[in-house]
Design a binder for these strands. Structure first.
Lengths: 126, 126
DNA sequence: TTAGGATCTGGAGTCGGCTCCAGGAAGGCT
DNA sequence: AGCCTTCCTGGAGCCGACTCCAGATCCTAA
């Protein structure tokens, strides 16, 4: 089974080493295995989790919620709660997409309007 | 021409009164008109601007960029720059939507997987 | 005219989410 | 064995974006 140094885990997950430590302190990540000398040794499973956490984080899940998900993930009787949490997040992503779509239209309209103005008032590429 | 008190401007824009003052200090908003006694008096134009700023802010534009847009808006020879700024923002909104779509799929898949697990291991609604 | 609420200003405080630092071990290369 | 890099811990610092505060002023309604 492959293992990863902190630097590798950081490179592959996109989180900084400091952030990985911070997440562990915050209980988002479980206590990571250590080498004889006390250094962290990340497993494939850890990397997988990190990949998923990165998705959640990048789509706006708060540290607080991330911690909740992390905690639930360490107790295998909590799948229903995890499902509930993820569904809530999915709903918030959908809402966010709807909002972004609406603003995108508005911004594009404004750009078009400016374009019209520019043509009308003759900015002239001359 | 209708005018609005700070409280009304806040209610209609969704920004707090403190935030409106902060935006003015930061140069995002122009210097708002004052009544004889020194109180702010917002115009329809101000409210319109606020509505648009709210969209931009809610779709992730930074205060820094907002300031730039605000400044440009006070000089009518800067339409091309405004267009450029808004197009950049539109692009970032599109990118964000793409990212959200991808994560949404991933979260939904995970939920489905959990659902399967729960059925298999017999959580039993009993 | 007087009480109560809305606003004013400048500046300090808060909060989320990292990010950096000092001082000290581990570990791999030669 | 020596050296350089990586990592360790606990705690402080930082950044963006507000949010709150004190003390003074303005305004409206009774």
């Amino acid at each position: 089974m492959t293992t990863y140094s902190p630097a590798e885990a950081a490179a592959q997950s996109g989180f900084s080493i400091d952030t990985l430590r911070y997440y562990e302190r915050e209980g988002i990540l479980p206590r990571i295995e250590r080498s004889a000398g006390g250094r962290r040794v990340y497993s494939d499973g850890d990397l997988w989790m990190l990949g998923f956490l990165r998705c959640l984080r990048d789509t706006g899940m708060s540290i607080e919620q991330l911690r909740r998900y992390g905690e639930l993930s360490r107790d295998d009787t909590t799948m229903p709660e995890r499902v509930a949490l993820l569904e809530e997040h999915a709903a918030s992503i959908r809402a966010r997409i709807t909002e972004l779509d609406a603003t995108l239209v508005r911004v594009e309209e404004k750009v078009d309007w400016y374009r019209g103005e520019l043509r009308r008032t003759g900015d002239g590429a001359s």
